[in-house]
């Protein structure tokens, strides 16, 4: 009863193949169209690239600060001064208690004699110290804990303070707390910036797609009138959004790594002055992939937003009223 048209495309496999062919065609057509008008496209890619680069750059700065603080022995050292009158077996007992704790990463015992020798060497007061009747320095346990978070560190200190033969526990918590506070603040800033600039990306893509829709008004109307589904009409615009997003991500990657290259020299100089072979970290392969994924997704979402907003306003006025 129906015309031959439906019969010829009834096979599910044929339909799928045609669908895939259409995707292939639309994706390459939209990319070619963007590359042909490369000046306009490059402007859009640059705008998107800058918007994506800012949070990525901030993220990398934080990443490098964390890496740097680890490099500079970011894990704090807890100095445990034992009571001076503690006997050798007693200090051994204390050392055992501290050393066997699961949170202990590294532990080192410094006898009063070692401490004195070290002090003599470093301070230059050798003669003065020699004149002392007895060694005034206590035995010390130096401990590097596994968990350097301020709260955990505080808990650990409280535990150590009540151990027998412990006289004094010293750790410079303030700078660690400040560093962690700074980093978590930076992370918040990066997130807020990401959200705001993602919105920017959505709007830029949405507006660009809106113009594309206006330019292809007739085509959309014709496609709808000859039986194109909404998906068929949407497809080229979603691909445009995808290419804009992906292009923006690649631009962002280039921008960020150009900045890093620019900063690498001075940063290495600073690191060298601290006798440290620190070098700036860029985006890893996984992070680059994530950036491309997020960028493309934002592009598609922006396009989908524009398409859903503007497409239904087309009620084709093609048949002149007569």
């Amino acid at each position: 009863m129906h015309s031959g048209a439906t019969a010829a495309v009834s096979g599910r496999r044929d339909q799928l193949l045609a669908w895939l062919a259409n995707h292939r065609q639309v994706s390459s057509e939209t990319l070619v169209a963007l590359l042909v008008n490369w000046v306009t496209s490059a402007m859009t890619w640059l705008v998107l690239g800058i918007a994506l680069a800012l949070p990525v750059f901030l993220y990398l700065v934080l990443l490098n600060i964390v890496a740097l603080s680890v490099d500079f022995d970011g894990n704090p050292r807890i100095s445990i001064y034992l009571q001076q009158e503690a006997t050798a077996s007693e200090t051994k007992q204390a050392l055992g208690l501290v050393g066997d704790h699961p949170d202990t990463q590294e532990v080192k015992f410094i006898t009063p004699d070692e401490a004195l020798a070290d002090f003599q060497e470093r301070s230059g007061f050798g003669d003065v110290l020699n004149s002392l009747e007895r060694n005034p320095l206590p035995p010390v346990i130096e401990l590097v804990p596994r968990n350097a978070e301020p709260y955990a560190l505080r808990q650990r200190i409280l535990e150590i303070e009540v151990l027998p033969f412990v006289d004094l526990v010293v750790v410079d918590l303030a700078w660690i707390e400040r560093l962690f506070a700074f980093i978590s603040f930076g992370e918040r800033v990066a997130w807020a910036l990401s959200l705001i600039l993602s919105l920017g990306v959505l709007l830029v893509v949405g507006n660009t797609i809106r113009l594309a829709i206006e330019n292809r008004r007739t085509e959309i109307e014709v496609v709808k009138l000859v039986g194109g589904t909404d998906n068929f009409v949407r497809r080229p615009f979603l691909y445009l959004g995808f290419w804009y997003g992906l292009g923006g991500s690649i631009t962002a990657w280039i921008l960020v790594h150009t900045c890093l290259l620019f900063l690498a020299g001075p940063v290495e100089l600073i690191a060298q002055s601290y006798q440290d072979d620190f070098s700036l970290q860029g985006l890893s392969a996984m992070e680059t992939l994530a950036l491309c994924f997020v960028g493309s997704l934002l592009g598609i979402l922006g396009a989908a937003f524009a398409v859903s907003k503007h497409l239904h306003t087309f009620s084709a006025a093609m048949l002149a009223e007569g």
């Binding site: 495309v9 044929d14 045609a18 007739t218 085509e219 039986g227 194109g228 068929f232 048949l319 002149a320």
Partner: peptide
């Protein structure tokens, strides 16, 4: 249509092929 509504950035072939592409015909 009275004003034929052709797509002027595509060849005659592509214009005529449009309904078939939409219907999912093989190349």
């Amino acid at each position: 249509f009275q004003n034929h509504q052709l797509l002027f950035d595509r060849t005659v072939y592509d214009n005529v092929a449009l309904p078939l592409i939409i219907a999912g015909f093989q190349h």
